[in-house]
Protein backbone atom coordinates (compact mmCIF):
# COMPACT_ATOMS: atom_id res chain seq x y z
CA UNK A 1 0.00 0.00 0.00
CA UNK A 2 1.39 3.38 -0.96
CA UNK A 3 1.52 6.22 1.52
CA UNK A 4 -1.13 8.06 -0.48
CA UNK A 5 -3.59 5.16 -0.09
CA UNK A 6 -2.89 4.95 3.63
CA UNK A 7 -3.49 8.66 3.96
CA UNK A 8 -6.86 8.45 2.22
CA UNK A 9 -7.94 5.40 4.24
CA UNK A 10 -7.00 7.05 7.53
CA UNK A 11 -8.77 10.30 6.66
CA UNK A 12 -11.91 8.44 5.60
CA UNK A 13 -11.87 6.37 8.79
CA UNK A 14 -11.58 9.58 10.86
CA UNK A 15 -14.37 11.19 8.89
CA UNK A 16 -16.59 8.14 9.44
CA UNK A 17 -15.96 8.21 13.20
CA UNK A 18 -16.64 11.94 13.49
CA UNK A 19 -19.79 11.64 11.39
CA UNK A 20 -21.24 8.76 13.42
CA UNK A 21 -20.28 10.09 16.83
CA UNK A 22 -20.41 13.88 16.52
CA UNK A 23 -22.07 15.21 13.37
CA UNK A 24 -25.12 12.92 13.21
CA UNK A 25 -26.12 13.53 16.87
CA UNK A 26 -26.01 17.29 16.17
CA UNK A 27 -27.99 16.83 12.98
CA UNK A 28 -30.53 14.68 14.87
CA UNK A 29 -31.24 17.53 17.28
CA UNK A 30 -31.74 20.07 14.52
CA UNK A 31 -33.80 17.84 12.21
CA UNK A 32 -36.08 16.53 14.98
CA UNK A 33 -36.64 20.00 16.38
CA UNK A 34 -37.87 21.25 12.99
CA UNK A 35 -39.75 18.10 12.10
CA UNK A 36 -43.18 19.61 12.79
CA UNK A 37 -42.41 22.83 11.07
CA UNK A 38 -41.04 26.23 11.96
CA UNK A 39 -44.17 27.36 13.81
CA UNK A 40 -44.13 24.49 16.29
CA UNK A 41 -40.42 25.05 16.77
CA UNK A 42 -40.90 28.72 17.61
CA UNK A 43 -43.78 27.99 19.98
CA UNK A 44 -41.66 25.36 21.80
CA UNK A 45 -38.68 27.68 22.09
CA UNK A 46 -40.74 30.65 23.29
CA UNK A 47 -42.84 28.53 25.65
CA UNK A 48 -43.19 30.03 29.12
CA UNK A 49 -41.43 27.15 30.87
CA UNK A 50 -38.60 27.19 28.34
CA UNK A 51 -37.99 30.90 28.85
CA UNK A 52 -38.03 30.44 32.64
CA UNK A 53 -35.59 27.55 32.33
CA UNK A 54 -33.33 29.64 30.09
CA UNK A 55 -33.36 32.48 32.62
CA UNK A 56 -32.46 30.13 35.47
CA UNK A 57 -29.67 28.58 33.39
CA UNK A 58 -28.21 32.00 32.56
CA UNK A 59 -28.48 33.19 36.17
CA UNK A 60 -26.76 30.04 37.44
CA UNK A 61 -23.99 30.34 34.85
CA UNK A 62 -23.42 34.03 35.70
CA UNK A 63 -23.06 33.40 39.46
CA UNK A 64 -20.89 30.34 38.84
CA UNK A 65 -18.66 32.29 36.52
CA UNK A 66 -18.17 35.14 39.01
CA UNK A 67 -17.30 32.77 41.86
CA UNK A 68 -15.00 30.52 39.85
CA UNK A 69 -13.20 33.39 38.15
CA UNK A 70 -12.49 34.98 41.54
CA UNK A 71 -11.25 31.64 42.83
CA UNK A 72 -9.18 31.08 39.70
CA UNK A 73 -7.38 34.41 40.01
CA UNK A 74 -6.72 34.19 43.77
CA UNK A 75 -5.58 30.56 43.63
CA UNK A 76 -3.35 31.11 40.60
CA UNK A 77 -1.80 34.18 42.24
CA UNK A 78 -0.94 32.29 45.42
CA UNK A 79 0.25 29.12 43.67
CA UNK A 80 2.17 30.66 40.76
CA UNK A 81 3.78 33.66 42.42
CA UNK A 82 4.85 32.26 45.81
CA UNK A 83 6.80 29.34 47.20
CA UNK A 84 5.32 27.26 49.97
CA UNK A 85 5.10 23.72 51.22
CA UNK A 86 2.30 21.51 49.96
CA UNK A 87 1.85 23.34 46.66
CA UNK A 88 1.47 20.06 44.76
CA UNK A 89 -1.09 18.82 47.28
CA UNK A 90 -3.09 22.04 46.95
CA UNK A 91 -3.24 21.84 43.13
CA UNK A 92 -4.36 18.20 43.39
CA UNK A 93 -7.12 19.17 45.85
CA UNK A 94 -8.34 21.89 43.49
CA UNK A 95 -8.69 19.29 40.71
CA UNK A 96 -10.87 16.95 42.81
CA UNK A 97 -14.21 18.00 41.26
CA UNK A 98 -12.97 16.79 37.86
CA UNK A 99 -12.49 13.23 39.07
CA UNK A 100 -15.82 12.96 40.85
CA UNK A 101 -19.12 11.91 39.32
CA UNK A 102 -21.57 14.82 38.95
CA UNK A 103 -24.12 12.68 40.78
CA UNK A 104 -21.84 12.68 43.83
CA UNK A 105 -21.38 16.46 43.45
CA UNK A 106 -25.13 16.84 43.81
CA UNK A 107 -25.35 14.21 46.54
CA UNK A 108 -22.93 16.02 48.87
CA UNK A 109 -25.19 19.08 48.99
CA UNK A 110 -28.24 16.93 49.75
CA UNK A 111 -26.24 15.35 52.59
CA UNK A 112 -25.44 18.80 54.01
CA UNK A 113 -28.60 20.79 53.40
CA UNK A 114 -31.19 18.04 52.96
CA UNK A 115 -33.46 16.72 55.68
CA UNK A 116 -30.74 14.57 57.24
CA UNK A 117 -28.04 17.23 56.79
CA UNK A 118 -26.18 18.80 59.70
CA UNK A 119 -27.01 22.32 58.47
CA UNK A 120 -30.71 21.54 58.00
CA UNK A 121 -31.91 22.68 61.48
CA UNK A 122 -30.16 26.03 61.04
CA UNK A 123 -31.63 26.52 57.55
CA UNK A 124 -35.05 25.54 58.87
CA UNK A 125 -34.73 28.15 61.64
CA UNK A 126 -33.70 30.81 59.13
CA UNK A 127 -36.42 29.67 56.72
CA UNK A 128 -33.92 29.30 53.87
CA UNK A 129 -34.26 26.57 51.28
CA UNK A 130 -31.04 25.37 49.65
CA UNK A 131 -31.69 21.99 48.05
CA UNK A 132 -34.68 21.52 45.75
CA UNK A 133 -34.31 25.27 45.22
CA UNK A 134 -32.19 27.68 43.21
CA UNK A 135 -29.27 28.03 45.71
CA UNK A 136 -28.66 24.28 45.54
CA UNK A 137 -28.53 24.38 41.75
CA UNK A 138 -26.01 27.20 41.87
CA UNK A 139 -23.88 25.45 44.52
CA UNK A 140 -23.80 22.17 42.61
CA UNK A 141 -22.83 23.96 39.40
CA UNK A 142 -20.05 25.87 41.16
CA UNK A 143 -18.71 22.59 42.58
CA UNK A 144 -18.63 20.82 39.21
CA UNK A 145 -16.92 23.70 37.38
CA UNK A 146 -14.72 24.81 40.28
CA UNK A 147 -11.26 24.03 38.80
CA UNK A 148 -11.83 25.32 35.24
CA UNK A 149 -10.40 28.84 35.51
CA UNK A 150 -7.62 28.10 37.99
CA UNK A 151 -6.43 25.11 35.98
CA UNK A 152 -5.90 27.36 32.93
CA UNK A 153 -4.29 30.20 34.89
CA UNK A 154 -1.89 28.29 37.17
CA UNK A 155 0.38 26.77 34.48
CA UNK A 156 0.21 29.97 32.42
CA UNK A 157 1.25 32.22 35.32
CA UNK A 158 3.90 29.73 36.44
CA UNK A 159 5.50 29.71 33.00
CA UNK A 160 5.70 33.50 33.05
CA UNK A 161 7.74 33.61 36.24
CA UNK A 162 7.74 36.43 38.79
CA UNK A 163 10.48 38.78 37.56
CA UNK A 164 8.19 41.50 36.26
CA UNK A 165 5.97 41.39 39.33
CA UNK A 166 9.02 41.56 41.61
CA UNK A 167 10.36 44.55 39.74
CA UNK A 168 7.03 46.33 39.98
CA UNK A 169 6.79 45.55 43.69
CA UNK A 170 10.30 46.87 44.32
CA UNK A 171 9.34 50.09 42.56
CA UNK A 172 6.49 50.45 45.02
CA UNK A 173 3.44 49.27 43.09
CA UNK A 174 0.55 47.96 45.16
CA UNK A 175 -0.78 44.43 44.78
CA UNK A 176 -3.78 45.57 42.77
CA UNK A 177 -1.62 47.73 40.49
CA UNK A 178 0.77 44.84 39.88
CA UNK A 179 -2.05 42.52 39.00
CA UNK A 180 -3.97 44.87 36.74
CA UNK A 181 -1.00 46.45 34.92
CA UNK A 182 1.68 43.73 34.90
CA UNK A 183 0.09 40.32 35.27
CA UNK A 184 -3.34 40.79 33.69
CA UNK A 185 -2.16 41.81 30.19
CA UNK A 186 -0.17 38.55 30.04
CA UNK A 187 -2.98 36.29 31.18
CA UNK A 188 -6.07 37.85 29.63
CA UNK A 189 -6.43 35.29 26.81
CA UNK A 190 -5.75 32.39 29.17
CA UNK A 191 -8.32 33.77 31.59
CA UNK A 192 -10.88 34.15 28.80
CA UNK A 193 -10.16 30.58 27.69
CA UNK A 194 -10.86 29.26 31.19
CA UNK A 195 -13.99 31.41 31.42
CA UNK A 196 -15.31 29.99 28.13
CA UNK A 197 -14.76 26.37 29.23
CA UNK A 198 -16.38 27.14 32.59
CA UNK A 199 -19.39 28.78 30.89
CA UNK A 200 -19.91 25.80 28.58
CA UNK A 201 -19.96 23.34 31.45
CA UNK A 202 -22.06 25.60 33.71
CA UNK A 203 -24.74 26.09 31.05
CA UNK A 204 -24.91 22.39 30.34
CA UNK A 205 -24.45 20.74 33.73
CA UNK A 206 -27.01 18.02 34.17
CA UNK A 207 -26.15 15.27 36.66
CA UNK A 208 -25.31 17.41 39.69
CA UNK A 209 -28.16 19.82 39.05
CA UNK A 210 -30.57 16.97 38.47
CA UNK A 211 -29.87 15.62 41.97
CA UNK A 212 -30.45 18.90 43.83
CA UNK A 213 -33.17 20.45 41.69
CA UNK A 214 -36.31 18.49 42.45
CA UNK A 215 -37.49 19.25 38.89
CA UNK A 216 -40.09 21.86 39.79
CA UNK A 217 -41.16 23.15 36.41
CA UNK A 218 -40.93 26.91 36.05
CA UNK A 219 -39.02 27.11 39.34
CA UNK A 220 -36.01 24.83 39.53
CA UNK A 221 -35.81 23.56 35.98
CA UNK A 222 -32.71 24.54 34.03
CA UNK A 223 -32.60 24.12 30.25
CA UNK A 224 -30.85 20.72 30.31
CA UNK A 225 -33.37 19.49 32.91
CA UNK A 226 -36.22 20.81 30.79
CA UNK A 227 -34.86 18.78 27.84
CA UNK A 228 -34.97 15.67 30.05
CA UNK A 229 -38.50 16.31 31.34
CA UNK A 230 -39.89 16.80 27.82
CA UNK A 231 -37.99 13.78 26.49
CA UNK A 232 -39.35 11.55 29.26
CA UNK A 233 -42.86 12.79 28.49
CA UNK A 234 -42.28 11.61 24.89
CA UNK A 235 -42.59 15.19 23.64
CA UNK A 236 -39.69 14.61 21.25
CA UNK A 237 -40.13 17.68 19.08
CA UNK A 238 -40.39 20.02 22.05
CA UNK A 239 -37.46 18.35 23.77
CA UNK A 240 -35.25 18.69 20.70
CA UNK A 241 -36.41 22.27 20.11
CA UNK A 242 -35.22 23.20 23.62
CA UNK A 243 -32.06 21.16 23.03
CA UNK A 244 -31.41 23.12 19.84
CA UNK A 245 -31.05 26.32 21.91
CA UNK A 246 -28.25 24.58 23.79
CA UNK A 247 -26.74 23.30 20.52
CA UNK A 248 -26.58 26.83 19.14
CA UNK A 249 -24.92 28.03 22.35
CA UNK A 250 -22.47 25.10 22.16
CA UNK A 251 -21.51 25.94 18.57
CA UNK A 252 -20.95 29.60 19.48
CA UNK A 253 -18.80 28.49 22.41
CA UNK A 254 -16.78 26.16 20.15
CA UNK A 255 -16.08 28.98 17.70
CA UNK A 256 -15.11 31.41 20.49
CA UNK A 257 -12.90 28.75 22.03
CA UNK A 258 -11.05 28.24 18.76
CA UNK A 259 -10.52 31.97 18.29
CA UNK A 260 -9.23 32.42 21.83
CA UNK A 261 -7.00 29.35 21.56
CA UNK A 262 -5.51 30.79 18.38
CA UNK A 263 -4.74 34.11 20.12
CA UNK A 264 -3.36 32.25 23.13
CA UNK A 265 -0.96 30.20 20.98
CA UNK A 266 0.16 33.31 19.12
CA UNK A 267 0.81 35.12 22.39
CA UNK A 268 2.86 32.22 23.71
CA UNK A 269 4.90 32.42 20.53
Amino acid sequence: MGSKTIKIVLILLSALFVTLMLILPLATVLVYSLRQGWRTFVSCVTDDYTVKALNLTLLTAAITLAVNTAFGIFSAWSIAKFRFRGKQALTTLIDIPFSISPIIAGLVFILIFGRIGWVYPLMEALDVKIVFAVPGIVLATIFVTFPFVSRELIPLMQSQGCDEEEAAALMGASGLQIFSRVTFPHIKWGLLYGVILCTARALGEFGAVSVVSGHLRGKTNTLPLHVEVLFNEFKLTASFAVASILVVIAIIILILRNIVEFRLKREEG
Binding site: P25, L203, L223, V227, V247
Partner: peptide, 14 residues
Protein backbone atom coordinates in the same frame (compact mmCIF):
# COMPACT_ATOMS: atom_id res chain seq x y z
CA UNK B 1 -14.09 19.58 21.28
CA UNK B 2 -17.85 19.24 20.75
CA UNK B 3 -18.40 16.77 23.64
CA UNK B 4 -16.91 19.37 26.02
CA UNK B 5 -19.16 22.13 24.71
CA UNK B 6 -22.42 20.24 24.19
CA UNK B 7 -24.51 19.76 27.36
CA UNK B 8 -24.47 16.08 28.31
CA UNK B 9 -28.27 15.84 28.43
CA UNK B 10 -28.49 17.06 24.83
CA UNK B 11 -25.88 14.52 23.78
CA UNK B 12 -27.84 11.90 25.68
CA UNK B 13 -31.20 12.47 24.03
CA UNK B 14 -29.59 12.90 20.60
Amino acid sequence: ELPFALPTAVAGVA
